[in-house]
Simulated assay, not measured.
Amino acid sequence: MFWGRYSQITSELNLLEAAIKNNHYDYYHLLSGADLPIKSQDYIHEFFKKNNGKEFINFQAKNILPDKLERVKYYYLFQKSDLRYNRTLYIVQKLIVKLQKMVGVNRIRKSFVKFQMGSNWFSITDDLARYVVSKKPWIQKTFNFTANGDELFLQTIVENSNFKRRLYFNRYDDKERYEDGPSREANQRLIIWDWTSHKPTNLTMKNYSQIMDSDLLFARKFVPDLDAQIIEEVLKSINHI
């Protein structure tokens, strides 16, 4: 799997396919190895029982920003490279996109789809999980050769379906909510954003109170090599040790 490439979407689809294959679960949660629950299992189960049928998906804004739409508007050819660590390919890709703009390339010109985007972390119902898997051919056709398409495909599917009515947080202003703080109510993930580096903050003991005071269910990013104590303390707290 390569960061920001279509292989990330493939991985998510493979996970959903495997999860729905032999059973029907109430919810499917996409979490990474850098995530932790920050509430007890009983609390989390009760929360989703109370909100059964709601979809927990983050949207960045009411309408996708023009520069973000470029992720699917143009072709991004280096799908088997992490351009964060390959300066040469990064520059070549920028030049290729610039050339596409000059000659008028627009791969979604004839599309009637309203594209959307947001955080790729989600908690979705069985109905939506199965619907997403059923759209696999369309997803591949539309989002292959895109940049960071994993932050677009689910939001776009929901935006253009009846699942939009089932969003837990449907005001689509989540970006405004967390610019000045850590709240990400829409997908129940606590992510403290560093606007200087434009990356999620690596959580340490300095963030302990902030984590424990949050009413959200999950948090990221935890880095054991940076601060293992915060992981131990969070787990102790939610397990009442």
Rank of each mutant, 00 (worst) to 15 (best):
N148L: 04
E185I: 14
F153E: 01
E46S: 10
V133R: 02
Y27G: 04
G181L: 09
S40A: 08
S119A: 15
I57Q: 01
D150I: 02
D174Q: 10
L83K: 07
T125V: 12
N170M: 04
K110I: 10
F56P: 04
G104S: 12
E232I: 14
S81F: 01
S7D: 14
F115S: 06
I192H: 11
Y28M: 08
L31S: 01
F48A: 00
K68P: 01
I64V: 03
S40Y: 04
Q60F: 02
Y85V: 08
D150L: 01
V97H: 06
I64M: 06
A18R: 12
S197F: 08
E46W: 00
I108C: 11
L77A: 11
E232L: 13
M1Y: 05
M212S: 14
I231N: 10
F47I: 00
K164N: 03
F153C: 02
N148G: 02
R84C: 09
V72D: 01
I91N: 15
G4E: 02
I124R: 08
R84T: 10
W138P: 02
S134P: 04
L203Y: 06
M212Q: 15
Q188Y: 03
R107G: 10
Q93R: 15
D35Y: 00
V97C: 00
Y178Q: 03
N106L: 09
K98F: 14
G118A: 06
I96D: 08
N162T: 11
R171K: 15
K50P: 01
N58Y: 05
S119L: 11
A228C: 09
I139M: 09
K54Y: 05
F222A: 03
D150G: 01
K21N: 07
Q140M: 12
E46T: 07
A18C: 08
A228L: 13
I108L: 15
L36M: 10
P182S: 14
N187G: 05
I157C: 08
L216T: 09
Q93P: 13
A186Y: 08
M205K: 06
N160E: 06
N63Q: 07
F122T: 11
I231S: 10
D213A: 15
N160V: 00
K206S: 13
E176D: 14
R71V: 02
F47R: 02
E12D: 12
G53L: 00
T125W: 09
T204Y: 02
N239K: 14
I91V: 15
Y28T: 01
L167F: 03
A186W: 06
K21V: 03
G53K: 06
N106D: 15
M117K: 12
N239D: 10
T196Y: 06
W195P: 09
D225V: 11
K136R: 15
H198Q: 13
L95P: 07
N144T: 04
